[in-house]
Design a protein around this nucleic acid. Structure first.
Length: 641
RNA sequence: GCCGAUGUAGCUCAGUGGUAGAGUACUUCCUUGGUAAGGAAGAGGUCAUGGGUUCAAGUCCCAUCAUUGGCUCCA
């Protein structure tokens, strides 16, 4: 008998060789029907694998991420089987599960393939799923594996086998399809009840652009048709919220081929939104002891040679601008920190002066590859809400905490309530690739971890994810649809102070090197606004709405009263307008609703004679009539919340 | 940069090798109205660009450009 321990700490006894499936059955029939895989001692295995010794077990179902991954990985095999039936001679690369579904990289040879073929494949997959073919695992020697795929003529699988150790190789077979695979898999194909192939894309074999490009087919599967329907609805909703679509509809920004790729043009309403965000953050920063600085859009080549950016990212910058006489080279600035370092150097610094905090909404330009550009989230010119903090090593933790406060304040104010923070540390096994002393790294890493802990943040720690110049803390927010976005970042930097030979005079009257902290709560305004648009579906909180209210007169007879109302409400923080068009009130309301203007003020005979306004809230409808002053107080209250 | 898809009116999109279309927005006129689209008329086009096939190309072929889904990269 062996002891099996469950996640809740309970222990049960089973005969050695028991399978996860049998264990599930011993708990309940329902569980046995739904179990997809099992995690045994931290390793995910097939439910049919015998368990020989005492161990901990977690039975995985659709509700576990690992269960989903197993389900989708098995679905990739099912798709491969369907492809082999429909397109004989197809060669297979890799077919993993991904965050939402799976893909398989395949080589169709000379065959043309497009999304028109999806339906055939989906139908074939469902047909094969109905056979409830078991996924059968088989250990196999390297020689046998090589023979199998040599005969099949699949050079990709042979390439994969080359790197595998003899003795560790397994095949999985379902129906007539056998694949090299380490597993695990779901019990049989019958679990797969709903299939949707999503898109097709090119992908280099092993991500290497010198190798052959394969066809990558993305798909997603579910065990219930209704789950697929829900998922497709979510995608529809995401499409509806797409910032590129809303940006056009709400007249926030546009792009022009003539101006250039990836260079957003901010329209008046989008600019209003930008300005409000900038002022909001500036106010918060002034409170936190930041000073605003301003630097030019270009910098001398030598600046970037000093900073090291030229060597590392010169090719990803726009090519240099030359002065006509001297032929000196300038780069459009790809970041603000070198400029800020020079500001730090503009005068001698004492330890008493630190920390120094320089903030700038600096517009930077980076040459992103054309295929990379995407709406506002990937552009070639964008504005960072950048700041650089120069502090003593003993101040790093305290400064870090203050920055965390600022970032969280910003997220909360903008309605991003669900966030996680990733602490990115050095790869402990490869310290050589990082710059800076062990002592400083240790200090900085501990400072970040302690700062995050003291702020009670839920953090994930990733080793080897640090920048070469220092550890960092990245903030990921979840938007209203549950999608994750990386926004703010805080980074500790030992490299630039070194390269720019920054120093300060300590209490010991000796020169010391300051530590630099880079931070950007928004990341970039462009990207942040894109995420914000999608998060709130274009319905901005009142204080950010480009147009906060609109007055809708019943007819032109009330135009004068409308103007009076507008004048008495408008001030520095609240701006509205009048819809004076010769349209009926229903039409004016509809148009204002479509434009997502938060408040509509309807005025006609009744309101004018009583000196009131009828108020309508976007998405809610009529909320009754009130005095102008009362409405104004309500707006101010809503804005300051 | 590479692979796939797409490109028709300001916007959203129909269009079968044979005279360029709709809805909406826009302009003018009528209408003066009560909580999500009042009526009429008008104007608006190098069918992305350049080649080719054809008696004839928005439609078929090739190239280029842009958009888009991916790949690669991301200070």
């Amino acid at each position: 008998m062996i002891n099996i321990t469950f996640p809740d700490g309970a222990t049960r006894q089973y005969e050695a060789g028991v399978t996860a499936n049998q264990i599930a059955l011993s708990i309940s029939e329902g569980l046995a029907r739904n179990i997809l895989a099992a995690e045994v001692d931290g390793q995910v295995i097939d439910v049919s694998r015998p368990i020989l010794a005492d161990t901990t077990i977690k039975l995985l179902t659709w509700n576990d991420p690992e269960g989903k991954a197993t389900f989708w990985h098995s679905s990739a095999h099912l798709m491969a089987e369907a492809l082999e039936v429909l397109y004989p001679g197809t060669k297979f690369g890799i077919g993993p599960a991904i965050e939402m579904g799976f893909y398989y990289d395949v080589d169709f040879g000379d065959r043309q393939f497009s999304s028109d073929d999806f339906e055939r494949i989906e139908n074939k997959m469902l047909e094969l799923a109905k056979t409830k073919s078991e996924y059968v695992r088989k250990s196999i020697s390297k020689a046998e594996a090589v023979d199998y795929f040599t005969e099949k003529g699949d050079e990709y699988k042979l390439d994969l086998i080359k790197d595998l150790q003899d003795g560790s190789i397994t095949f999985y077979t379902q129906g007539n399809f056998t694949d090299l695979c380490r597993g695990p898999h779901i019990p049989h194909t019958g679990f797969i009840k709903a299939v949707k192939l999503m898109n097709v894309a090119g992908a280099y074999w092993r991500g290497d652009e010198t190798r052959k490009q394969l066809t990558r087919i993305y798909g997603v599967t579910f065990s219930k048709q209704s789950e697929l329907t829900d998922y497709l609805q979510l995608l529809e909703e995401a499409k509806r919220r797409d910032h590129r679509k809303l940006g056009k509809e709400l007249e926030l920004f546009t792009f022009s081929e003539k101006v250039g790729l990836g260079l957003p043009l901010w329209l008046p309403k989008g600019t209003a939104l930008r300005e409000k965000l900038i002022h909001f953050l500036q106010r918060a920063q002034v409170k936190s002891g930041y000073e605003q600085v301003a630097t030019p859009h270009i910098g001398h080549k030598n600046l970037y040679i000093t900073s090291g950016h030229y060597e590392k990212y010169g090719a990803d910058s726009f090519q240099p601008i030359k002065t006509p006489q001297e032929g000196e080279e300038f780069f459009l600035k790809p970041m603000n920190c070198p400029h800020h370092c020079e500001i730090y150097k503009s005068k001698p610094r004492s330890y008493k002066d630190l920390p120094v905090r320089y903030a700038e909404f600096g517009t930077v330009y980076r040459y992103e590859q054309s295929g990379e550009l995407h709406g506002l989230t990937r552009v070639r010119g964008f504005t960072q809400d950048d700041a650089h903090l120069f502090c003593r090593p003993d101040q790093v933790k305290e400064e870090f905490k203050k920055v965390i406060d600022l970032v969280l304040y910003v997220f909360n104010a903008l309605g991003f309530e669900d966030y996680t923070a990733q602490v990115s540390l050095r790869d402990p096994d490869n310290k050589a690739k990082y710059i800076g002393s062990d002592e400083n790294w240790h200090l900085a890493e501990m400072a970040i971890i302690e700062a995050a802990n003291e702020k009670n943040m839920s953090t994930i720690v990733e080793y080897g994810e640090a920048a070469f110049y220092g550890p960092k803390l990245d903030f990921m927010v979840k938007d209203a649809l549950g999608r994750k976005w990386q926004l703010g970042t805080i980074q500790v930097d030992y490299n630039l102070p070194e390269r720019f030979e920054l120093d300060y005079t300590g209490s010991d009257n000796m020169k010391h090197r300051p530590v630099m902290i880079h931070r950007a709560p928004f990341g970039s305004l462009e990207r942040f606004i894109a995420v914000l648009i999608e998060h709130c579906a274009g319905q901005f909180p009142l204080w950010l709405a480009p147009e906060q209210f609109i007055i809708l007169p019943i007819s032109d007879k009330y135009e004068d009263y409308a103007k009076k109302v507008l004048e008495s409400i408008n001030n520095a923080d609240i701006r509205g307008l009048i819809d004076s068009r010769d349209e009926k009130i229903g039409r004016k309301i509809r148009d204002a609703e479509v434009k997502k203007i938060p408040y509509m003020l309807i005025i006609g005979e009744k309101e004018m004679s009583e000196g009131l306004i009828s108020v309508r809230r976007h998405g809610k409808g009529d909320i009754g009539s009130m005095a102008i002053g009362e409405f104004k107080d309500q707006l101010i209250k809503e804005i300051t919340v």
